[in-house]
Amino acid sequence: MKEFVLYTGCTTPVRLPAYEASVKIVLAKFGITLVDMKDANCCGAQYVESVSHTAFAAMTGRLLAIAEKMDMDILAICGACSGSMKTMKHELDNNKKLLKEVNEVLAEEGLKYTGKVEVKHLLQIFQEDIGYAAIREAIVRPYRGIRLSAHYGCHVTRPEEIVQVDDAENPKIIDKIIEIAGGTAVDYVGKTRCCGGPMLGIDAELAGKIGRDKIENIRNENVEGIITACAFCDLQLTQVQIGDDASDQDKIPVMTLPQFLGPALGVNFSSLGIELNRINPQAILQG
């Protein structure tokens, strides 16, 4: 049995608790236990990162150190958090001066990061720790060919040589799981492009344009739903279909990967928080 410490990040527990619940239930089905990281702080992605690299290093370094004290590797389910922790781990593991500076602050509360901890994104757990064969075996209620498009999340797959999740230019993990669960994975123009989420704090109008561009590219393929692996992307791709500037065309349901996979594994809808989805995903669930 494998164990990870779950770092939820800021967004998931408040804006997308159904994702957190589905991750826990679906991974438990495969014998993976998650322990919540207690007394955590924001990783500092994007905002703190933009104003002080050292402050960012200390905040993310503290998360790595907490996991090291717990003697467990970290599971991140948000692209921003997995991106920060993976890139900062890479930097701390290769920059002794920065590591020393971070550890000096951490020492004040008895923490230390030495490089032992690994950071994994959810997609890696499915591909590396569970494996496609075990997922295939666990499917009890396969989908009947429903057409779905995957959105991976920029910080989930890039920079490829550091994060080491999938092929950054041609990601396949979500697509493979869609197919294993009985769906039909459908490619679309601009699959690896950003959802626009990181632009929200700077220019909401541009963020909306970028998100809607992606939705239209997906709509052109006549799919029934979008499957995500990042809380931020999931919320953004939903919001751009609901907000004031949304088109009046039919909304395309957006679901996180574990929420999509759960029903195929026999998990009931309510424990996956399906009713909390802002765009009703019944079209997917009946497919």
């Binding site: 826990k24 207690k38 955590a40 702080n41 402050a55 200390a58 509360e109 424990s271």
Partner: peptide, 21 residues
């Protein structure tokens, strides 16, 4: 959803970091 409701974030560390960096 059966999730804990006390999110238990730490705010002491960031205050220290803000002051320092």
């Amino acid at each position: 959803l059966g999730l804990h409701t006390d999110l238990g974030w730490n705010n002491e560390f960031v205050k220290k970091i803000k002051k320092r960096f």
